[in-house]
Amino acid sequence: MKSSPQDVRWSIGDLAGRFELETHVLRHWEDKGLLHPARDSAGRRYYGEDDAYRVAAIIASKESGMSLDQIRTLVDASADGRRDALKQHLVELDRREAELARSRHMTEHALECRAHDITTCPSFQAHVADIVEGTRRGLPWVNGHGTHSS
């Protein structure tokens, strides 16, 4: 017979081990208000199934680049600003995605370029000539004002 979520009780070490974390990480998240473990009569923390799902959400959110403050807003049902925090995170993800696309494009160009040293590549030189001449500032693939084409 399968146990109910109320029957599950993990120690801090057991829960940390399930997620390959050090126990101090769970304590830190508790200090930051992200976790609220129950306590036994001796004051030892214990965690249930709901806590495990919360830890999984924290880890997934951290891996997506969210700060602990953003995550606290995400996992706290009473917190205001959840939608705003998520919208801000989407803006940041879009920025990072564009940055990665520009980096990929530059790397692919360098890989396919006949010039061993990209700085001697005629296409690259043409792409940044106005910066070198002083008529424009900043690289287009860094500040988003253009693309590098071969």
Rank of each mutant, 00 (worst) to 15 (best):
S3E: 10
S3C: 07
S4D: 14
S4M: 13
P5Y: 11
P5V: 13
D7C: 06
D7S: 07
V8N: 00
R9H: 03
S11N: 06
I12A: 06
G13S: 14
L15E: 01
G17P: 00
R18S: 07
R18E: 13
E20W: 08
L21R: 03
T23D: 04
V25C: 05
R27Q: 00
H28C: 13
E30T: 15
E30Q: 15
K32I: 09
G33K: 06
L34R: 09
L34Y: 02
H36L: 12
P37F: 11
A38G: 11
S41T: 14
A42H: 09
D51A: 07
R54E: 07
V55R: 08
A56R: 14
A56G: 10
I59A: 04
A60V: 07
K62E: 09
S64T: 08
G65E: 09
G65L: 07
L68H: 06
L68W: 04
D69C: 05
I71Q: 02
I71C: 01
R72G: 02
R72I: 03
T73E: 10
L74I: 14
V75F: 08
D76I: 12
A77E: 06
A79V: 05
D80Q: 08
D80W: 01
D84I: 01
A85D: 05
Q88W: 00
H89T: 04
L90C: 11
V91P: 00
D94R: 04
R95G: 02
R96V: 02
A98Y: 00
A98T: 11
L100E: 06
A101S: 09
A101D: 08
R102A: 15
S103H: 07
R104S: 13
R104H: 14
R104K: 15
R104M: 15
M106E: 06
M106T: 14
M106W: 04
L111F: 02
L111M: 02
C113A: 09
C113K: 08
D117W: 05
I118T: 12
T119L: 07
T120S: 12
T120I: 08
C121V: 04
F124I: 03
Q125D: 03
A129M: 09
A129D: 05
D130T: 15
D130L: 14
V132H: 00
G134A: 11
R136H: 10
R136F: 11
R137P: 00
G138R: 04
G138V: 04
G138Q: 08
L139V: 00
L139K: 02
P140K: 01
V142F: 05
N143W: 09
H148A: 11
S149P: 01
S149C: 09
S150A: 15
S150H: 14
